[in-house]
Design a protein around this nucleic acid. Structure first.
Lengths: 202, 202
DNA sequence: TGACATAACAGTCATTTGTCTGGTTCATTG
DNA sequence: CAATGAACCAGACAAATGACTGTTATGTCA
């Protein structure tokens, strides 16, 4: 009359995967949904497993709130959705982020809300293996180190270039012999952020 | 005694962004949480706005479920975790997938469980902008079309190459003049899948 | 065998959350 | 002004969900 007995550890793993997948899909399950998914006849059975997972540090939960189980923020890198911007013009970054073209899932230990994604235009970084229509994940910051690939405002438009420092001057170098380096007026140079990842769909 | 009166459209936008950001963070809000976030004295006020957003197609909701508001399914695909494999040897793909080096978040409308990720070794695809240590997302399939980039078993190891068909023969072409095309014995050619995305961390 | 631990079950209560019906305030306008 | 509609408010009810206490089966092992 009761459901077949199973090894705790294996079922625990299955339940964790179920909850994790639901959380990654943005749909936190209720305890009773876990119960039904695994055919338990009692709510408490599912609850026992969930509590065990919390005790193991595999899950966290918000007391009293509905659908309150979450993945811990520390151990595994949480996946977050990051706004995808088509084009950015000077001074419009924050407004562009409020009305993005879409969202991209990124795994990052970055706590703050300072990542965004940008679609690359042009061939100027071809030899750095960054092609048109690639999507770059960008960490917002006002400056960058020598040699890092940055997104900067040039002629009122966001472009991807490698930042080069020499003789106290800053240069934005394309990586394609067909393009010329840019030596911006230091007063006007506006760096939007540093490229931390490149993605290309085939 | 009542809260300051505001223009509907602007507040609607604000409420939408609030809900959207909560959803993207994986924490769907309850109606009362929206109410409190905007200082409404009545639940129904928040509810009115949420209903309006649903009517506008900006949100969807699941009847009766707690925290049931969602972003519409338009173009945004669910994010799934896909096993990341370091190296694969012949015949060991399925076992490798059970003990992966990690997981990668992928957005895909693919329903089946036939995606995996593989870390690229070697420079043989350099001119296709695929570099060592890049991670390729692969869709498992036994064959592929002319011109597609595939993962195939060569010398008992998985390699990334472009598949070329001519004269009824199949060739695995590197994309780097320093490497030579491979013309495998058709009997032994084992294609693991097709590369659908390339990622590089900087 | 009997003590023990584990996995599952039963039932109840409390809180959170969604739903509903209607009322109040206030600017606009014919 | 009276009518109207928009924005907001009040309160109650119901469904979903979490929390709690205790019980029953089943395997292990001294």
């Amino acid at each position: 009359m009761t459901q077949e007995r199973q090894s705790s550890t294996e079922r625990k793993r299955q339940i964790f995967r179920f909850v994790r997948d639901r959380l990654l899909a943005g749909e936190p399950p209720s305890i009773r949904e876990v119960q039904q998914a695994f055919g338990f006849r009692a709510v408490q059975s599912a609850r026992d497993y969930l509590e065990a997972l919390v005790a193991d540090g595999m899950l966290e939960k918000a007391q009293g709130k509905a659908r309150g189980y979450r993945l811990p923020e520390g151990g595994e890198w949480p996946t977050r959705m990051v706004p995808l911007l088509g084009a950015v013009q000077a001074g419009q970054l924050s407004t562009a982020i409020e009305d993005p073209d879409g969202f991209v899932a990124v795994q990052s230990n970055n706590q703050r809300n300072d990542l965004f994604a940008l679609k690359v235009r042009g061939e100027s970084m071809r030899d750095a293996a960054i092609l048109p229509d690639d999507v770059v994940i960008v960490q917002r910051q006002q400056s960058a180190n020598h040699g890092e690939i940055v997104v900067a405002m040039v002629d009122d438009e966001a472009t991807v270039k490698r930042l080069w420092r020499h003789d106290g001057r800053i240069e934005l170098r394309p990586e394609n012999p067909a393009f010329s380096p840019i030596v911006p007026d230091p007063e006007q140079l506006q760096i939007l952020g540093k490229v931390i990842e490149v993605r290309r769909s085939l």
